[in-house]
Amino acid sequence: MPESTTVEPGGAADPGVLRQAAWDASPIIVSGFAFGLVFGLLSVRNGVSPLAATLMSALVFAGASQFVAVDFWRQGVQALPVAAITFTTLAVNLRHLLMSATLAPTLRGHRCSVLAAAFSLLLIDETWALSEHRFKQRRASLRYFLACGGLIYLGWVGGTFVGTRFGAAIPNPAVWGLDFTFIAMFLSLLILLRKRRSDYAVWLLSAGLAFTLSLLPGLGPLAVFIAAITASAIVAALTGSEAAAPAPAVAPDAPTVSAAVNKENS
C-alpha cells in the first residue's frame, strides 16, 4: 500500500501550500461571505433567531441544505418540524458520501480518525473540488484541504453573523423582493448543478410532484422529501447506463478515484 508517497510528511508547516490554498480558494471565500450575508439576512426574516442562524453556519457549514432548512422556519418557531428538517438535510447532503469516498483514498497516509475529524466539518462541494483538482497535479496534502476549508468557513460564518445583524433592520421584505431571494437561490443552485440531460426530467418530475403533493392536506414539509426521493429514484431507474457516469474503480490499492463523482458534482 503506498503510504508516505501520496501524503506529505506532517511535520513542518509548508507556507507554499498554505499560500496556494488561500489563492485557489479566494473567489470562494469572497462569494461564501456574500452568501453568508444573504443566508443570515433571510434566516432572521424567516423567524430564525440570530444565534441559531450563526450556530447553524458554524456547526453545519453546508450552504444549500441550510437555505433549504431555514425555509421550514416559516411555519413558526413553535411548530418547527425537526424530523422533516433532519431528513431533508440528509437528502441534500447525501452527495458528500461520494466525495469522502473519493477523497479519502488519496489521503491514505493519515489515520481514519484524523480524516474523519477533518472531513466532518470542512468537506463541502468546494473544498472537495479544489482538493481533487490540486491532488491530481501535486502531492495530496491534508494541510491544503484544511487551509481551503478553514478560510471558506471563516467567510461563511462571518457573513452569516453580519447578515443576522442587518436582517432585523429591514422593514418590509416583500417590497425589496426578499421573499423571492429564496426561489432565486434554489433556482441558481439547480441550474449550476445541471450535469446531464436527464436532469431536466428530475426537475420537472420533482417540481410537479411536490406541487401536487402540496395541494393535499396534512402532508406539509414531507411533500418535499417524498417528491425528491420519488423523482430521483424514477429517473435513476429509467436512465440507462449510457447516461450515467462510469463507475469508479474503488479498490484498496487504487489511490486516486474520482472519475464518477467528478462528473456528478461541481
Partner: peptide, 13 residues
C-alpha cells in the same frame, strides 16, 4: 446524483 437537484426542484415547485 439526482437527489440534490430533486430536493431543490421540489422546493421551487
Amino acid at each position: 446524483a439526482n437527489l440534490p437537484a430533486a430536493v431543490l426542484a421540489a422546493l421551487i415547485g
